[in-house]
């Protein structure tokens, strides 16, 4: 018997699990609907109501096909394609995340290089870090007075901490020998920062960025449910209000897929800067 590679065997197993799961889901829903069908008498008497069941996977797939074949349609404020909604969410995440990069990396350098700065800022970081980003929302709405910017602020505040701490940790952990190499070559502080410390700390910094983008994507869904208007979080909540569970399940899947893609981008970047000692 010819043995397959581990990857092939894993792929086959994944596929089998998926089929079994979808099959079980499909069958259980069909039975439930059949079993609970109302008698004619009950309908005539208005007794009981048709209980809306969780849609079977076949419905979700039909929905997915329908949505993905035309992802960017725009038929008014409450009816936009999934592509538009995701684009809103991704742009908010990237704006908030980008601002966090601009703050966290220079500040992380400072904290990592100066023990005084580290000790002085550490109490603030320790208090601010465990705050749920959504707790900032009311304050942000009051101060900024704009729902969209508040959502971006919430993303900023949740993605700043992992990057800040990882940058500081990475910079502080740069081997003294490498810094000595820079010193014996008479490199200025700026050149040392860019040619020695940044590449040395890059893998740790990228780890922080990868954690941050993951958290940002988790938080944007909740933030958009609160601020409403546009975005995938709003879409999920809106479909729930429409009692369109097929769309809810479909959008949950899309959130997962986009989150995975964002993580994959940062995983690739991380691999590019990682070095072996």
């Amino acid at each position: 018997m010819q043995s397959l590679s581990i990857n092939k065997r894993a792929a086959i197993l994944s596929f089998v699990l998926l089929i079994v799961f979808l099959g079980a889901w499909e069958i259980s829903i069909t039975r439930q609907v059949l079993g609970e069908a109302l008698t004619e008498y009950e309908i005539l008497m208005g007794l009981g109501q048709q209980r809306s069941a969780i849609p079977p996977p076949s419905d979700v797939m039909v929905k997915a096909w329908e949505q993905l074949s035309n992802p960017f349609y725009d038929a008014g404020p409450n009816d936009k394609g999934i592509g538009i909604q995701l684009a809103y969410s991704i742009s908010r995440v990237l704006s908030g995340f980008g601002l966090a990069v601009l703050v966290a990396i220079p500040l992380g350098f400072l904290i990592g290089m100066s023990p005084v700065a580290y000790k002085a800022l550490n109490p603030f970081i320790q208090v601010l870090r465990p705050i749920s980003p959504l707790a900032w929302m009311p304050l942000a709405l009051f101060i900024i007075q704009d729902a969209n910017s508040s959502a971006i602020f919430v993303i900023f505040i949740c993605s700043v901490w992992p990057m800040l701490l990882n940058t500081a940790f990475g910079v502080a952990g740069v081997r003294a020998d490498w810094v000595n190499v820079a010193r014996t070559h008479e490199l200025g502080s700026l050149r040392t920062a860019f040619t020695v410390i940044l590449p040395a700390a890059a893998p740790t910094i990228l780890t922080g960025m990868r954690i941050s983008i993951g958290i940002a994507w988790l938080v944007i869904v909740a933030a958009e449910m609160l601020v409403g208007g546009t975005g995938i979080g709003y879409y999920v909540w809106n479909e729930w209000n429409n009692l369109d569970l097929t769309s809810v399940i479909f959008s949950i899947l899309m959130i997962g897929v986009v989150g995975m893609l964002l993580d994959a981008v940062f995983a690739t970047l991380q691999r590019a800067v990682t070095y072996a000692e």
């Binding site: 014996t184 008479e186 590449p199 000692e277």
Partner: peptide
Amino acid sequence: PSLDRGVVFQNYSLLPWLSALKNVTF
């Protein structure tokens, strides 16, 4: 420290993310 006094450290102190050539051109 000064470029007039070059140092070879015991643990080589090469920058691991640069190739051998890049370490010298550095």
